[in-house]
Design a protein around this nucleic acid. Structure first.
Length: 996
RNA sequence: GGGCGGAUAGCUCAGUUGGAAGAGCGCUGCCCUUACAAGGCAGAGGUCACAGGUUCAAUCCCUGUUCCGCCUACCA
């Protein structure tokens, strides 16, 4: 390409771009500033091609500007025409600066600090404590946003509000994290020793523990941070001791050897609900057990875990099974061992229909077998050790053949199973294998396969605690919202099993039990450095360490090494955080708390246990409402997980779109009983909403100069009366929805009001008044503008705290901060049904004119003359009253007159529900669109007429339907028929025009 | 195996004491309109999963079916 044309082209393009750019900037600046810039610009242009002054980056920006500004979303920037660099954003809301400033300011002013002395009915929420070393994920963001909405709302309503924050110590999870760190350093918790290890965890807590708290503050959470609690704080630990000792003294805590869920990686017991079940493909092995007294006969058992057969201590058949009934009491020879085991009859364990009808019993490795073993007084032989490896000593005790022991010792289950399969096949006792679907339990923390493991543990006898907790929900002292979960809760509670509360880890509340080494010499065994305290050891349970044994007075005591399940301390959260066991003022004021907001996943882990403990130790429910919200999933409905890489980081989102946008998104999607599929586009949409609010406020500020006069609503202008009426309606709706925890509906109502009533219509309606200096209605309108905007900001504040504070501060207001203002209450004096009726007509008319304008391809800016008229005389009068607004909003000149008086030539008539609009058709207009539209409406009208008149012709309908429904149908037929006639007429005229 | 929930516009979801189907996003057309292009205006788009039943009338109530989630459970 020759050199010259290329440069000339570039120059021309640059100038074009430049002027566009300039035009925008000019508009956004004040006049004097713009004039200076104007001068600079022309200077630049005179000197030469402006692009020669720009860097490469600026050039690109300039080039893209002209293209993108039309089609592509981009931030609206102000441009400094001297440097060609973008200036600060101002036309658009910039959340970052605002959020940082206000979250700091609110804390500094102590607005969130609660005190029992404060007036007002108490309203208290305790936060579900997140893991102290964790970080904020989007589930927290949802959970906390909803709580903050409730708290800010109630605070503004004048309640004595306490939102109590805190974290829990997350025993297993936190210990795992620190152990991993140690591993990197080549250390282990054993090499460090208990004391130094625990110290290490505290250090880790000190460095990482503030992360989540700071993130919460960033979300704008209005917690009373002065009352931040941690489950291992001194006070809370005291509560744990108190509860443990009292439950023990009441006989509700016991120690015993049971089969428990054991994580062979975490090396600790887990409670039933800490085990996640997962379906896996497995095999069902059919194994032949020969009868001891008749080796030619045999019994075939089916199992999914053949390696555990080494620990079998019986075979069960159904006592009613004719196939095997006669064998009960006889013995079988257990393959691969030298043992013989009995055949027992058990109707609970055995299902006649399943497998072979004969079941092997391995009491040390299966929960059902354990119970069957109890029933038949069978020995328990464990063949797996604590890390789930085949245990040589155990196998010896189980009389496994020594060659087999040698082959299997020290192998994990996964490797031992095929070996056992081979051995059984070699011996000819493996009858067959078949594919089988089964569920395996996995550790909820590390996903390792959990083994049923026989060991001495501490348990809570849960039934006596569960009963009152069931009753509290049944009789409504606790409401669960949505109600659908009530049955879930009750079902689980009625079938609850004793709670294993001991964990074989070091991080947590160590169990306050000691053992006398003298009295328990036979019960305390140390092998390979592992001390085992057998189930018959007698504990001394005490809040403080005993100095000597109360029986033998020995001073040789050791403390139980186990710690308590983290949920044991979390269960006390609603009262331990308020000072219990001390009878503090806080406890008296704020207990029971008002509501607990949580996800379904911890209904049993936590909520149920809080209810039980609250009732037991406080004699009252811990909260009146339990609001259960949805789980947050990704846009495809997948559960978010780090491994899938589909995690939405709330902090990233907040950074990108603003905290208010995220909060509003989550609130608007919190529909009951449905999971939230979160997509970034939604958040972006609400970012736009925030910007809309911002600009509405900018608009108001532009026109607030001048006097403002307060008048009673009745004496204000039509737009004012209408918006006040709508605002009153919105206030009522938001309040009602919040009272029933319908955050989604409250959010929708607010969105609808602010965008589609306040911005789309009200601000447009009052523009002529505001933009006319010395307008007679100016002072009243300005007053209403401020009044409604200020009220709306308060109404909105719990949902979008930052932007509402920022705006509220800039508009006329009274008070220091919106945080502590009164929440709007619905004012009946604001309701104006007549104004709303007028508005409906206005909206319908303007809509019709705009449709006509679009049909005739008149550009939005072009002023057009049009006629409006209505069948009903009172409506016709209303149109007269609205004439000014009609003209303004339709951008034209409005002639209000009966349609029969309108010109018949060159007029597009649109009709709906008795309302007619006529628009002058210019000479060169393409009428096709308009005709199509009329034809379509005619078809639809005919269809509807046919349908309704059909109903009216139906004798049964007329005789049985309520009279008002019939009248309504008749009226509709009349209106539609009239519309139809006018439409047909209009279409004809247009077609005639087309023909000429 | 048991229980619960869901199926409504291209997508995400509201809604209905049973009596003319709604929003947001996306899409199409016009428009840089003195708050906002992160915008305005106007549109297109739905057999309310399927099959029966109750009713003058069903997207809504009842029954069954299919599909999808979740919870729960010891079928070895």
């Amino acid at each position: 390409m020759p050199r010259f044309p290329r440069r000339a082209l570039a120059r021309a393009f640059t100038r074009l771009t430049f002027f566009r750019c300039f035009f925008r900037v000019f508009r956004s600046f004040s006049r004097p500033r713009a004039m200076v810039l104007l001068q600079d610009v022309f200077d630049d242009l005179l000197v030469g091609d402006c692009i020669t002054h720009a860097s490469e980056g600026h050039k690109q920006r300039l080039m893209s500007f002209s293209v993108r500004s039309r089609h592509v979303k981009m931030p609206t920037a102000r441009w400094d025409l001297n440097s060609m660099a973008p200036l600060q954003l101002e036309k658009a809301y910039d959340p970052k600066a605002v959020e940082t400033r206000w979250s700091r300011e609110w804390l500094a002013r102590g607005y969130f600090h609660a005190s029992p002395e404060q007036p007002g009915q108490p309203y208290c929420i305790v936060i579900p404590p997140p893991n102290v070393t964790g970080s904020l994920h989007v589930g927290h963001a949802l959970n906390h946003s909803l709580q903050d909405i409730l708290i800010r709302w109630r605070r503004m309503q004048g309640r004595n509000t306490l939102w109590l924050p805190g974290t829990d110590h997350a025993g297993i999870a936190t210990q795992n994290v620190v152990e991993k760190q140690l591993m990197v350093e080549g250390l282990s918790r054993e090499s460090l020793g208990r004391e130094r290890f625990v110290e290490r965890v505290w250090q880790w807590k000190a460095t990482s523990g503030n992360t989540i708290v700071n993130q919460q503050k960033q979300l704008g959470e209005s917690c009373d941070w002065d009352r931040l609690r941690f489950t291992m704080d001194e006070g809370l630990s005291k509560a744990v001791l108190e509860v443990f000792v009292r439950l023990y003294e009441d006989g509700l805590i016991y120690r015993g050897e049971r089969l428990i869920n054991w994580c062979p990686r975490c090396l600790t017991a887990l409670s039933d609900i800490e085990v996640e079940h997962e379906d896996v493909k497995g095999k069902l092995y059919h194994i032949r057990y020969p009868l001891a007294d008749d080796p030619n006969s045999s019994l075939i058992v089916a199992t999914t875990r053949p390696e555990t057969m080494l620990g079998d201590t019986a075979v069960a058949v159904h006592p009613d099974d004719p196939r095997y009934r006669h064998l009960i009491g006889k013995k079988v020879r257990l393959p691969l061992t030298t043992r013989e085991i009995p055949i027992v009859g058990d109707s609970i364990l055995v299902d006649l229909e399943f497998g072979t009808g004969a079941v092997k019993i391995t009491p040390a490795h299966d929960f059902n077998d354990y119970e069957a073993g109890e029933r038949h007084k069978l020995p328990r032989l464990a063949v797996l050790d604590h890390i789930a490896l085949l245990d040589a000593a155990g196998m010896q005790r189980a009389a496994v053949e020594s060659s087999v022991i040698e082959m299997l010792r020290g192998l994990p289950v996964s490797k031992a199973r095929p070996k056992v399969e081979t051995l059984l096949r070699e011996q000819g006792v493996l009858e067959k294998t078949e594919d089988h679907k089964m569920a395996v339990g996995k550790c909820y923390r590390c996903k390792t396969v959990v083994e049923p493991y026989l060991s001495p543990q501490w348990f809570v006898d849960i039934k006596p605690l569960a009963e009152p907790a069931i009753k509290a929900v049944e009789d409504g002292r606790i409401r669960i919202i949505p109600e659908g979960w009530v049955n879930n809760y009750l079902g689980w509670m009625r079938d609850i099993k004793d709670w294993c509360i001991s964990r074989q880890i070091w991080w947590g509340h160590q169990i306050p039990a000691w053992y006398c080494l003298i009295c328990n010499s036979r019960q305390i065994i140390t092998t390979d450095g592992r001390t085992t305290i057998l189930q018959n050891a007698i504990p001394i349970v005490s809040k403080s360490a005993p100095t000597r044994c109360p029986v033998c007075h020995s001073q040789e005591l050791i403390r139980d090494p186990d710690v308590l399940d983290t949920w044991f301390s979390s269960a006390l959260w609603p009262f331990s955080t308020l000072g219990w066991p001390e009878q503090t003022q806080e406890l008296k004021t704020y207990y029971p708390t008002s509501v607990l907001v949580t996800g379904l996943d911890i209904l049993f882990f936590w909520v149920a246990r809080m209810i039980m403990m609250g009732l037991k130790f406080m004699g009252d429910v811990p909260f009146k409402d339990v609001y259960i919200h949805a789980l947050v999933r990704d846009a495809e409905g997948q559960k978010m997980s780090k491994s899938k890489g589909n995690v939405i980081d709330p902090l990233h989102v907040m950074d990108q779109f603003g905290t208010d946008a995220l909060r509003f998104t989550l609130a608007s999607m919190a529909s009951p009983g449905r999971d939230i599929k979160l997509a970034e586009e939604r958040i972006e949409g609400y970012r736009n909403f925030a910007n809309k609010i911002w600009n509405a406020a900018r608009f108001a500020l532009m026109y607030l100069d001048g006097p403002r006069t307060a008048l009673p609503p009745m004496q204000r202008t039509f737009p004012d009366r209408w918006i006040l009426s709508r605002l009153a309606h919105t206030i009522r709706a938001v309040t009602v929805e919040l009272e029933s925890y319908r955050f989604d509906r409250a959010a929708t109502v607010l969105y609808q009001f602010i965008w589609h009533e306040y911005c789309d219509w009200y601000l447009e309606l009052i523009k002529p008044v505001l933009q006319t200096p010395e307008h007679p209605d100016g002072a009243i309108t300005r007053h209403t503008l401020v009044e409604t905007l200020e009220t709306t900001m308060r109404l909105m504040h719990p949902f979008m705290p930052f932007i509402t504070e920022e705006i509220w501060q800039t508009i006329p207001h009274q008070g220091d901060s919106i945080v502590v203002q009164k929440y709007p209450a619905s004012d009946e004096g604001w309701s104006a049904p007549d104004a709303e009726q007028h508005f409906a007509l206005l909206e319908q008319t303007v809509g019709l004119v705009r449709t006509g304008r679009a049909l005739l391809n008149y550009p939005p800016g072009q002023q057009i003359p049009f006629h409006v008229g209505h069948d009903a005389p009172n409506r016709q009068n209303q149109l007269h009253e609205l004439q000014r607004h009609l003209a303004h909003l339709s951008r034209g000149t409005a002639d209000v007159s009966p349609p029969r008086d309108w010109p018949t030539a060159r007029l597009l008539r649109l009709v709906t529900e008795g309302l007619s609009v006529g628009i002058i058709v210019a000479e060169d207009v393409d009428l096709k669109k308009a005709i199509d539209r009329l034809a379509k409406q005619l078809t639809e009208t005919d269809k509807e007429l046919h349908r309704i008149s059909g109903k009216l012709k139906n004798a049964e309908f007329v005789s049985k339907a309520p009279p008002d429904v019939i009248v309504e149908h008749q009226e509709r037929v009349q209106t539609l028929s009239r519309d139809r006639a006018l439409l047909a007429n209009s279409e004809q005229q247009l077609r005639a025009m087309l023909a000429t």
